[in-house]
């Protein structure tokens, strides 16, 4: 079996946080306790969307020590294939769902003398659990959180009132921006920086830390990608001896699973590397979208991450 262990849960609360973001609360259906987790962990939520089972990763934002319930926040993506739309439109309080055990690809370096969090938009969610962990266990931290405007600033009020000295909020609409270079330049040795947000923000922080001479090990980032729709394509799976069609609104990984092929996965968002698959033969173009493979691996045509990447062309043969 692929992926982390599963947990049967019931949706016990749904709260509209703002126009785009909705919060969901899960409790164990059997009434038992959920596993504790570490700040920055995510869960993979299974959605039965007609014939398709979608599995999307969402950061856990609740207190890692709270075993009574997990909460996640989902931002509606009107252009995506429908995972977030399904959560927004089709899930109701009382629904039974299946989620995975917590998995952490964005954990805190507990040796850090200070944790510096940089969030953009819905990228705030992993920091909410990390902040609760820091508050419980002690240690210096600071948050810099950029949002489009006050109306779309999820959890801004809570953060500012609970942590008036640690939390700093910036609104794009008011032309406020994180003074990144100054911020990074002042940080004492032993600081670790964590960034979660849109790709542009992650690249900005990574490039700036590199320019300023920050050690690579002190820079942490996470961005889950939702698989994007695309043109249908055909794939030959050499090991399973199957030819499968990948539909417009499903990922290559989902198409393999629908065909009964047990493909490995963990995050389903292009970050963890578990689903890496060897390409045996191809004629056409890859649409690589993951964060896992290096640029030269993308260019080589030898590997693909089927959770988020697609293909356009005549033939694609995979070692699966």
């Amino acid at each position: 079996m692929s992926g982390a262990e599963k947990i049967d849960v019931t949706v016990t609360e749904i709260v509209a946080v703002n126009e785009l973001v909705t919060r969901f609360k899960f409790e164990r259906t059997d009434g038992g306790l959920l596993p504790t987790f570490s700040g920055g962990a995510h869960t993979v939520v299974e959605m039965k969307d007609g014939a398709i089972t979608r599995m999307n990763p969402y950061s856990l934002m609740s207190d890692p020590m709270d075993q009574s319930a997990y909460t996640i926040s989902v931002r509606r993506d009107d252009e995506g294939r429908g995972g977030s739309l399904f959560m927004h439109n089709n899930v109701s309080v009382g629904d039974k769902m299946v989620i995975s055990y917590p998995v952490n690809l964005f954990s805190l370096d507990l040796r850090a003398k200070k944790q510096l969090f940089i969030a953009g938009g819905i990228g705030i969610t992993p920091f909410l659990s990390q902040i609760k962990q820091m508050e419980r266990l002690g240690g210096a931290w600071e948050l810099h959180y950029a949002c489009r405007n006050a109306a779309l600033g999820s959890y801004v009020d809570e953060l500012l009132s609970a942590h008036p000295y640690e939390a700093h909020v910036y609104y794009d609409d008011e032309k406020q921006a994180i003074a990144l270079e100054e911020l990074l330049n002042g940080q004492p040795v032993g600081t670790h920086v964590y960034v979660c947000g849109p790709k542009g923000m992650i690249n900005w922080v990574r490039a700036t830390t590199e320019k300023l001479g920050w050690p690579r090990e002190a820079v942490h980032y996470e961005e889950f990608l939702a698989p994007q729709p695309g043109k249908p394509f055909e794939v030959k799976l050499a090991v399973s001896n199957k030819v499968i069609q990948v539909g417009e609104d499903e990922s290559l990984l989902e198409a393999m699973e629908r065909s009964g092929v047990d493909a490995p996965y963990l995050c389903r968002g292009g970050a963890c590397g578990q689903c890496e698959t060897r390409v045996i033969d191809y004629s056409g173009n890859f649409i690589h979208r993951d964060h896992w493979l290096e640029d030269d691996e993308h260019a080589s045509g030898e590997k693909i991450m089927p959770c988020v990447s697609r293909f356009e062309g005549k033939t694609l043969v995979l070692d699966r």
């Binding site: 002042g186 004492p188 920050w214």
Partner: peptide, 30 residues
């Protein structure tokens, strides 16, 4: 008092580099 952008250069004997390296890692430089 070092900042995250401080660069460290060690040269000489293994004993010197090893001991100075230990001070750096204790301070939080990988």
């Amino acid at each position: 008092d070092a900042k995250m952008s401080t660069q460290v250069y060690l040269s000489g004997t293994e004993s010197l580099m090893g001991q100075a390296m230990r001070e750096c890692t204790n301070a939080g430089i990988p």
